[in-house]
């Protein structure tokens, strides 16, 4: 059964990668990358049960944390062209 779940997640990953390659805008690619991150976390969680190695869950937690930081960093870069930009103040939020 875990094999079936793994296959379903791999199929999801493949379809999402097609969207990432097709684009057409950079935001479509960023969205696909974010979804790939979520699916990777789920895949790591299922792999824990598939292989019986509990360390995979810790990897999944770290990957989930990195995923959101990565997405926000990419978006900030494409919005301001600079990661050091302080972003918007409270007045235009």
């Amino acid at each position: 059964m875990f094999v079936a779940a793994t296959l379903a997640l791999l199929a999801t990953l493949a379809l999402t990668l097609v969207r990432a390659l097709k684009g057409p805008t950079v935001f479509d690619r960023a969205l696909a990358a974010n979804t790939v991150g979520t699916v990777a976390v789920l895949l790591l969680a299922v792999m824990e049960f598939l292989t019986g190695r509990p360390d995979f869950l810790d990897l999944a937690i770290v990957y989930g944390l990195l995923n959101v930081v990565g997405t926000i960093a990419v978006l900030k870069f494409f919005r301001y062209g600079d990661l050091g930009e302080p972003g918007e103040g409270p007045e235009d939020r």
């Binding site: 059964m1 079936a4 779940a5 199929a11 696909a32 979804t35 789920l42």
Partner: peptide, 17 residues
């Protein structure tokens, strides 16, 4: 639950396309 989750993941990806 795993089957339903797998199916909705694949459906979501199909929707993404």
């Amino acid at each position: 639950l795993l089957a339903a989750g797998g199916v909705s993941c694949v459906l979501g990806a199909v929707g993404l396309l």
